[in-house]
Design a protein around this nucleic acid. Sequence first.
DNA 1: CGTCTGCCTTTTGTAGACAGTAGTCCACCG
DNA 2: CGGTGGACTACTGTCTACAAAAGGCAGACG
Lengths: 257, 257
Amino acid sequence: MTAVPDPVSSARRIAAPPSMSALAAEALREMVLSGDLKPGDRVVENRLTEALGVSRPPLREAMRVLEQEGLIVQTPRKGAVVAPVTPHDIYEIVSLREEIEQIAVRLGVPVRSQERLDRLRRAFADLEAAAEEEGAPRVVASSFAFHLAIVGLAGHRRLEDVYRSLSLQMRMCMAMNRRARAAIETARQDAARHRPLMELVEAGDVDGMAHTLAHHGQRTFLLSIEDDAPGHSPESRAWFARIHREEEEAMRRDGHA
Amino acid sequence: MTAVPDPVSSARRIAAPPSMSALAAEALREMVLSGDLKPGDRVVENRLTEALGVSRPPLREAMRVLEQEGLIVQTPRKGAVVAPVTPHDIYEIVSLREEIEQIAVRLGVPVRSQERLDRLRRAFADLEAAAEEEGAPRVVASSFAFHLAIVGLAGHRRLEDVYRSLSLQMRMCMAMNRRARAAIETARQDAARHRPLMELVEAGDVDGMAHTLAHHGQRTFLLSIEDDAPGHSPESRAWFARIHREEEEAMRRDGHA
DNA sequence: CGTCTGCCTTTTGTAGACAGTAGTCCACCG
DNA sequence: CGGTGGACTACTGTCTACAAAAGGCAGACG
């Protein structure tokens, strides 16, 4: 039928040869996403080599990957730090994420590939299983995987790659103030909102998907961003103001319902 | 006025400490974009180290960057090749590029930042200067820089980064069949079409920009892609068909005018 | 007492070398 | 003559070691 089997999902290798670089990248990524390393923290090579048990060259390559993913920033002779996130950064991440979701839904929602739909179903099942667990930090990862699978419906590898990178940055932001535990609550609340998305996909309802996704973001997390925090740009200020307006609107509507 | 000076343009360092990794990445990128290395060609580390005069560690880091940019593909124990481009890849690159341009115009076109507008004006002047030169391979780079500056109007660093990466891949595709010189012709023709864009930006015409950009792509390059080439997906086939339809429509309209 | 300058430590950038694995070619056997 | 096994080659993955630069600290001078 199609010359390429499925450009997106065929990226995974069947037999994965463990590579120290890849392992180091994964470990480092996990340290950032779990909040062990907070934005602004210095990332010293020597310290990590003995912590991870790898030598510096593979670690440096891993740091290059993390840099491209936007999780750390490197300045030539000064070292690396976990990427600091300003309100403007959060604006960039969330707004671009939503735009990409819209594009993906437009491209992929009358699902044409059984393979991609199966992937989404698996992600949904995994998410529901994770939601039942106690405490459930796995909900966050599963939720992001579910959204990633939605974007994957488009069969657009580059679109999915960008979305994956943004999701990682988003998770880093949420790990930053997970201390407040607000993000976890958000995740559990959002988990309940995933079933309608799944149903809309099954029904092939493009407009419904687009509309639902547009109001699906981690809103309570976004609302926790102070308006007078440093690092705002005019764009981010206007964008956050819009989020606040929409959320108040939604709360008023729900109150009347 | 704003807490962050300008997140996009502040990325450039004032005093650039020369880093072998960065130099190697730039040289390697140039080799790919100029067509010295064609898609599918193997990228052997030892061969490049003696060609570029650097050692393997910085070269490997450079290759990691190029990999993230989508210009080369690395498979764990087999080595690296210049990213092969199928029609599906071209569909991905061009379609995402156009989507990003639309987003950027929506976000940035009533230009609020004098700095960003100045950057666009400089890019435009540079493009016009390059168009006057003989042969003018610099037109291609200047044209891409101009488009990048348009996207930069949004003040959205991540959006611009994605666009830059896609532009590099696009240039690689065009370098691939530059042998036919069709791409160069396209670039010169397109150069004339840049002035309206500049004027629309100055006028703050969002809809005009969006509409013009939607039909501004390297169409003659795209039309050179054979419909029966290997590596098509259902999505790419449908997309190319649409491009052909639109182009025929445009030619018929111009013929009547 | 404050500030500037020089040295020292820390950290990064780079080089060269070694080990392990995948692909390939040839020889041998059926 | 075809297929299979093994050895060889070449490449990648990783490590240790060295050099250079940036930042911190102490001491001396104004």
